[in-house]
Simulated assay, not measured.
Amino acid sequence: MQSPHYKKILLTGVNGQVGHALQQALAKQPALFGELVCLDRNKLDLSNPQAIRGAVQAIQPDLIINPAAYTAVDKAESEPDLAYAINAIAPGVLAEEAAKLGAKLIHFSTDYVYAGNKVGAYVENDATAPLSVYGKSKLAGEEAIRSVGLPSLIFRTSWVYGAYGKNFLHTILRLAKEREQLRIVADQVGAPTSSLCIAQAVLQVLARWDGERSGVYHLVNAGHTTWHGFATAIVDAYAQLQLTHHWQPLKALVANIEAITTADYPTPAVRPANSYLDCTKLSADFSVQLPDWREALMAEFQALPNQ
Results as ranks from 00 to 15, higher is better:
residue 76 A to D: 02
residue 38 C to V: 05
residue 102 G to K: 14
residue 100 K to H: 15
residue 63 L to N: 06
residue 76 A to S: 13
residue 46 L to Q: 02
residue 82 L to S: 13
residue 58 A to L: 09
residue 36 L to W: 04
residue 102 G to N: 14
residue 68 A to N: 13
residue 91 P to N: 07
residue 106 I to W: 13
residue 36 L to M: 03
residue 52 I to E: 05
residue 49 P to C: 01
residue 78 S to E: 15
residue 69 A to T: 11
residue 97 E to I: 12
residue 99 A to Q: 15
residue 72 A to M: 11
residue 53 R to L: 06
residue 77 E to W: 00
residue 95 A to I: 09
residue 82 L to I: 01
residue 53 R to E: 14
residue 42 N to C: 09
residue 54 G to D: 15
residue 61 P to R: 03
residue 38 C to F: 06
residue 103 A to C: 04
residue 106 I to H: 14
residue 81 D to F: 00
residue 43 K to G: 15
residue 49 P to I: 02
residue 44 L to P: 07
residue 71 T to L: 10
residue 65 I to H: 06
residue 38 C to G: 06
residue 62 D to M: 09
residue 35 E to V: 07
residue 81 D to E: 13
residue 40 D to K: 02
residue 38 C to K: 04
residue 55 A to L: 01
residue 72 A to Q: 09
residue 46 L to N: 00
residue 92 G to Y: 10
residue 49 P to S: 00
residue 45 D to Q: 05
residue 99 A to R: 14
residue 60 Q to M: 05
residue 63 L to F: 09
residue 97 E to N: 11
residue 92 G to L: 03
residue 59 I to L: 00
residue 47 S to T: 05
residue 89 I to E: 14
residue 56 V to W: 04
residue 54 G to I: 07
residue 60 Q to G: 02
residue 78 S to C: 13
residue 100 K to Q: 10
residue 60 Q to C: 07
residue 33 F to N: 05
residue 106 I to C: 12
residue 104 K to S: 07
residue 76 A to W: 00
residue 34 G to Y: 03
residue 49 P to H: 01
residue 65 I to N: 07
residue 33 F to R: 10
residue 98 A to L: 13
residue 46 L to A: 03
residue 78 S to L: 11
residue 47 S to H: 02
residue 41 R to W: 03
residue 107 H to Q: 10
residue 51 A to F: 08
residue 99 A to H: 11
residue 65 I to V: 08
residue 66 N to C: 02
residue 96 E to K: 15
residue 72 A to G: 13
residue 34 G to P: 07
residue 95 A to Q: 07
residue 58 A to Y: 05
residue 106 I to F: 10
residue 79 E to C: 05
residue 42 N to M: 09
residue 52 I to T: 03
residue 75 K to A: 12
residue 100 K to Y: 06
residue 48 N to F: 05
residue 57 Q to L: 04
residue 66 N to W: 07
residue 107 H to Y: 10
residue 54 G to W: 10
residue 102 G to T: 08
residue 67 P to K: 06
residue 83 A to F: 01
residue 47 S to I: 12
residue 108 F to C: 05
residue 57 Q to K: 08
residue 95 A to T: 09
residue 102 G to E: 09
residue 83 A to C: 08
residue 59 I to P: 00
residue 43 K to T: 11
residue 86 I to D: 10
residue 82 L to P: 06
residue 70 Y to G: 01
residue 83 A to I: 00
residue 38 C to M: 09
residue 39 L to Q: 08
residue 39 L to K: 10
residue 99 A to G: 11
residue 57 Q to R: 11
